[in-house]
Amino acid sequence: MTDPTTERSPKARFDSLSGSVDERLYSQMTLIRQFEERLLQLFEGGELFGTTHCCIGQEADAVGILNHLDERDIVFSNHRCHGHFLVYGDRPELLMAEMMGKAGGLVGGRGGSQHICYHGFHSNGVQGGIVPNAVGMAMAEKLKGTGGMAVVFLGDGTLGQGVVYEALNLASLWSAPVLFVIEDNQWAQSTPVEKELAGDMVARGRAFGIRSGEITSTDASEIYAHFADIVASVRETGRPRFEVVHTYRLCHHSKSDDKRPREQVEARRVGDPVPLLARRLDPSVVARLDAEAGRRVTEAEEHARSLPFPDPSTLEDSLVSAR
């Protein structure tokens, strides 16, 4: 059962959790990590169909940023959206059902891993195109006067798309309350950042008159503190912000396609955000939070397994919304 007061508000939910900030951030990160590890096992066992893009190594971004959003806000994520969704929605069973292609999944099996929607959360699978969508959503909230803002996630690779710069220009011209988060994980699929990106990432935002910054961290607490003011300033000023998080993807791009130098990946494990935070917590608390998350993932899997596959007779449903 979901709590209606926290269902649409990551901030309210985060505030309602017990424990220190570090413990709460850890509880969310271990859920994301165990959820994705389970997904990969299910793929290996041939139980999932299609593809998936895990965020193993980047969990600190999701928990550090999205816990500042409330029920008025909008998130637009990309193909690598599981962590973002689990923080926003906290409904692993709905995402697992979607991954299994089940009726009762987030979007009834129509979208799968990278095309999901839940209240103010959306994701889509084409790089760049979601960025103007997020700007438009932020503009709509501004015109309606709701006080809501949007967060859109893109990666270093997506900075290659021209439409991103059209969207930055429009967001600045029109003062859209939108936060552009660039998760720089150093790799665009199999292409290292030095082969896909010229110049300076942060300067890209500044060039459009958008207040821009960066943080190099996989420490969830640090990122959480860093983004508190940034989210608040977007809301208060009604102006966009552009923030680069330099992180690292410890897993493959999608399923088992990793050809990156092993020694590079291994060297980055020292920054793995999950043990990084765990080392600061009481081991018994870590064990409890790990077990709790593991139980939730197992329940999500069992729930998803129990659901039927969608009936092809429903294919023509939802050509317009059910409103």
């Binding site: 103007p132 438009g136 503009m139």
Partner: peptide, 22 residues
Amino acid sequence: LTTPISEAGFTGVAVGMAMRGL
């Protein structure tokens, strides 16, 4: 709203506006 010469950008912005009730 007059726009810059950015057909993809402002069409994309309009898509987002439509998704939020405009």
